[in-house]
Amino acid sequence: MAFIELNNVVKNYAKGSEVVHVLQDLNLSLEAGDFLALMGPSGSGKSTLLNLIGGIDQPTAGRVVVAGSELGSMSSSQLAKWRSESIGFVFQFYNLLPFLTAQRNVELPLLLTNLNGSQRKENAMTALRTVSLDDRAKHKPGELSGGQQQRVAIARAIVADPQILVCDEPTGDLDRQSAQEILALLEILNEQFKKTIIMVTHDPLAAEHAKNILHLDKGVLVESGQTEVAT
């Protein structure tokens, strides 16, 4: 079985009396260590697919198996625990807590572990060093640039050492140079730290950094391919 496997996945939403079909009979297999870019127009179901793989939403029908766990059979609290151990999330708008310093933001996922205070701090600083922001540990998000905030968000995503990184338009709010830095960082995490990365993006240049690209349209996988050169 593949590292991430979706079989005949359907996802519908109720919008008033209307049922919106977001994903239709979707099948997908990903191996560990992959770096996948999910592309497609708005409303194509990219983020919904990401949510299903990240265990923050459940399919209407079908089977989602990630890292050996079938997510559809897990309770809400089991899913929460699984997410804390297996998945790191990176969002378009960073979603850092504004009243906490960079180090405290990165430390947050470690509150769910048995590490003591000094171990948590040490791990948070290691993650910040990985994203080259250890010198900004005491700064609050408001005191950092967009690119720096996204790097802090990536440090938060990797601090608990998850196998998978789920990134929802991680460069969507950044200028080109900052976006390139973030994409380069994701490549390092994929190649050197062996993280499996699934990234939703609208940007073809960003998608080129992935090893594989999938296109979604109206909830259906319409095209897949391998990128030629990751720059």
Binding site: I56, S77, A80, S84, L108, L111
Partner: peptide, 14 residues
């Protein structure tokens, strides 16, 4: 939204 992020990270409802 922050509570959503915390839930995403793995903090449970309780």
């Amino acid at each position: 939204a922050e509570l959503g992020v915390l839930k995403t990270i793995g903090f449970n409802d309780f």
